[in-house]
Structure formats: structure tokens, C-alpha cells
């Protein structure tokens, strides 16, 4: 019983059948169905013993073999086709492509001797290029990066916060969302940079809350968030722009 090692190698019932036929050196045009059926079933049993998931295709082939076997037992009528014919045709067709795939494998091996290099990427430096980021492409990290840029480049004053002291929250996401929504209704669009500049000094809490509010709004399908260039201002507007 040492052939169990090979069992999971079989790609499908055709490959298993071919294995049996080749092992027994059987003439494919005159398959002893009874013998092959027994052997085939033996294999299936083996597979089940090893708790392998026997695919339905294997079972179907077993049924086909048994059907052919029973047909062969019946007395033959004249002009009747050999019940094995269809199976043999299928087997041969499968075998043909199996051979071809082995041949193609050689081509694949051969082509692995040649090296090429990946495509170059041209960095986009021009800021006249308007880049519109659709809502789906915006993620938390991009917003985070903008946050960092804001802090660095715009030189916002950030209040020193005392450690280990809990405050009541001064800003609420809901309020910020309403603020933005109100501005959009009024002006048509909202600039993130300007919103920050409105206050003389802003706390980390406000910045974070505003960002959360924008994230919440980005879930809202009516909203569109875009940026004219990398590290540039973020504009929030409603989808249906006139």
C-alpha cells in the first residue's frame, strides 16, 4: 500500500485513469473495463481511507465506469456503438492536452533564461497638473499625511497639553460635521486649510476632531473630497457641483 503517496497528485479522474492504463500497459482502444473499474474503485477507497476529500468528479467517473461495465454485460445488438467509445475519446483528448502542456512547460523553462527589467516610473513633479482623487481612493493614511504636512508647513500653534489630565471634550465630531455641511451649503465648498486658519490657535483635539468629521463625511455619498496637487489643500464639496 505504498502508492498512497501518489494519490493527491492526480489532477482529476482522467489523470487517474491514465495512470492505471499506463501502469497495466493496456491498449487504450480496448480497455478491459471490468479490471480498470475495480482498480479505480480501489483507489477511491484508498483516498477515502486517508480522509481525503474525494471530489465529485472522481465519483462521477466511477459511476460512468460501472455503467459501461454493465452495458458490456448485456447482449450486443447489431450496429450498436461500443459503450467504451465515448470514454476513450474523452481520455485521448485529455491526454493530448496533457502532452501539449508538458511540451509547453519546456518553452516556459527556456524563456526563464532571459531577463528583462521592470518599467520605469516617471515622477510627477509639475504642480499645474490637477489631480483629482475620488472618494474611494482616500484612506486614513492620506488624511494622516495631510495632517502632518499641516502641522509642519503651516506652522500652526499647538497648545501644550498637560499630561494625565482628562478634559471634557471641547469639540464633537458631530458638531464639526454640521459645521462643514453648513459651510458647504453656504459656499459650495470648504477648504481644509482655511478652516484651520480661522482659529488663532488650535488644539490637537480640534484638528483630530475635524479630521474625524471629514472621515465621517467621506462615508456620505453626496460628498466629494479632492486635492489639486500633492500636499496641497483639501477641498470638501458636495457631489452635485453646478
Amino acid at each position: 500500500m505504498n502508492y498512497s503517496v501518489n494519490i493527491n497528485v492526480f489532477q482529476g479522474p482522467f489523470e487517474l485513469l491514465f495512470h492505471l492504463i499506463e501502469k497495466k500497459e493496456i491498449d487504450i482502444y480496448d480497455i478491459p473495463i471490468s479490471e480498470i473499474t475495480d482498480q479505480y474503485l480501489e483507489y477511491l477507497e484508498e483516498m477515502m481511507q486517508f480522509n481525503m476529500n474525494v471530489a465529485s468528479e472522481f465519483i462521477f467517473m466511477a459511476a460512468t465506469l460501472i455503467e459501461i461495465k454493465s452495458q458490456l454485460l448485456l447482449p450486443k445488438k447489431e450496429k450498436e456503438e461500443d459503450p467504451r467509445q465515448e470514454l476513450v475519446a474523452k481520455l485521448l483528448e485529455y491526454k493530448m492536452f496533457k502532452d501539449v502542456s508538458e511540451e509547453l512547460k519546456k518553452y516556459e523553462d527556456e524563456s526563464s533564461f532571459y531577463f528583462s527589467k521592470p518599467r520605469e516610473e516617471m515622477a510627477l513633479t509639475s504642480d499645474t497638473n490637477t489631480e483629482q482623487i475620488s472618494l474611494n481612493e482616500i484612506n486614513v493614511y492620506e488624511l494622516y499625511n495631510v495632517y502632518l504636512t499641516l502641522i509642519k508647513k503651516q506652522n500652526f500653534k499647538i497648545e501644550q497639553e498637560e499630561k494625565f489630565k482628562l478634559y471634557r471634550e471641547n469639540y464633537r465630531v458631530k458638531d464639526c460635521m454640521e459645521d462643514i455641511a453648513k459651510k458647504i451649503r453656504k459656499y459650495g465648498k470648504v477648504s481644509l486649510f482655511n478652516t484651520f486658519k480661522e482659529k488663532e490657535s488650535i488644539s490637537k483635539e480640534y484638528i483630530v476632531t475635524l479630521f474625524l468629521a471629514i472621515l465621517e463625511l467621506s462615508n456620505n455619498k453626496g460628498m466629494k473630497i479632492y486635492q489639486d496637487n500633492i500636499f496641497g489643500d483639501i477641498i470638501i464639496t458636495s457631489q452635485e457641483r453646478k
Binding site: 489532477q11 482529476g12 479522474p13 482522467f14 467517473m61 474523452k90 483528448e93 485529455y94 492536452f97
Partner: peptide, 10 residues
């Protein structure tokens, strides 16, 4: 479907 018919598997 044709590929599956020839290979005998999904």
C-alpha cells in the same frame, strides 16, 4: 465549460 469537459475537473 469546455475546459472543464476536457480536464474532467472544475
Amino acid at each position: 465549460v469546455e475546459i472543464e469537459r476536457i480536464r474532467g475537473v472544475k
